[in-house]
Simulated assay, not measured.
Amino acid sequence: MRCQPNPQQPVYNWLKNKQYCLLCDEVADTALPICTSCEADLPWLGGHCQICALPLPSTGLTCGACLKKPPSFSQVEVPWRYAFPLDSLITRFKHHAKWPMGRLLGELLSHHLQHAFDEGLARPDLLLPVPLANKRQRQRGFNQAQLLAQWLSPRLQLPLQPNWLRRTLDTPAQQQLDAATRKRNLRNAFALAPSSQLSGLHVALVDDVLTTGATAESVARLLKRAGAARVDVYCLARTPKPGD
């Protein structure tokens, strides 16, 4: 039995003349399966830290954490806050294998990134999905970050290297851990394949949600030590600071 979706065979008929919104089930008025009203109601990020994308009251600011200790990655590019109904869509994609939800979010993310490139965001040399440990990927049946990267790669015309980055430790799930525990949890959790060639490259990591940034920091530090010139992070959503 094949538990991995075949990227050459779409899990949703995107060529239908009439699309239905995956959120409200009404006929969509766009080429994607989402209507204009539901797309507008998504929790768009708004003001945020210009480095880690933490939601802030206005644009052009840098959060206190990034001022105190600049991260190893240069910039996080993300369209949404992790809030309803986006959190439900990501959960259904990630934990219930609802790939049409992920495909829709990947398409919208590609539009966001293309607009960011047009506005001056530096284009990376390649995409790297954040890997899952082998055991967790077998349990889930797929790696949501790799699927997102597979959908982004042809849309953005960027090469994808799905096997350069590996997760060597099956650490506990990060969702319920605080920032300090997440950092300890990820020590030596990632490694690079012998075939990877990062010297002088601008690399973009692809993941679903950025919470504390511990995973992005751990991977970016590894990539910079291996010679990467710049590391950016592309993801679907950024969580707000606890209590906000």
Rank of each mutant, 00 (worst) to 15 (best):
C3N: 14
C3H: 15
Q4W: 15
Q4L: 15
P5W: 02
Q8E: 14
P10D: 01
V11W: 05
N13R: 12
N13T: 12
L15N: 11
L15R: 15
K16V: 05
Y20K: 09
C21S: 07
L23M: 07
C24A: 08
E26G: 04
A28M: 02
A28T: 04
D29L: 09
A31H: 09
L32W: 05
A40S: 10
G47Q: 11
C49I: 02
A53D: 06
A53L: 06
P57W: 10
P57E: 10
S58G: 12
T59P: 05
G60Q: 09
L61T: 14
L67C: 11
K69W: 12
P71K: 04
S72W: 10
S72I: 08
Q75V: 07
V76F: 00
E77K: 08
Y82H: 12
F84N: 10
F84T: 11
L86I: 05
S88K: 15
S88A: 11
S88M: 11
S88C: 14
T91A: 15
T91E: 15
K94R: 14
K94I: 06
P100A: 11
M101I: 08
M101T: 04
L104H: 01
L104T: 04
E107W: 13
L108Y: 07
L108R: 15
L108T: 13
L108Q: 14
H111Y: 14
H111Q: 15
H115S: 12
L126P: 04
P129K: 02
V130D: 01
P131Y: 02
N134Y: 08
K135L: 06
R136A: 04
R136I: 01
Q137S: 02
R138W: 12
F142H: 00
Q144V: 01
A145H: 00
L147R: 02
A149K: 00
W151C: 04
R155E: 05
R155P: 02
Q157V: 13
L158C: 05
L160M: 11
L160P: 07
P162C: 07
P162S: 12
N163Y: 07
W164Q: 05
R166Q: 14
T168V: 15
L169P: 07
L169Y: 12
D170T: 07
Q176W: 10
A179Q: 13
A180R: 15
T181P: 02
T181Q: 14
R184V: 09
N185C: 10
F190R: 02
A193W: 08
S199A: 13
S199M: 14
V203D: 00
A204D: 01
L205N: 00
V206S: 00
D207G: 04
L210F: 12
G213N: 01
T215K: 00
T215I: 01
A216T: 03
E217Q: 15
E217C: 09
S218K: 00
V219A: 03
K224R: 15
G227K: 06
A228M: 03
R230A: 09
V231G: 00
D232F: 01
V233C: 03
V233I: 08
R238E: 02
T239D: 07
T239C: 11
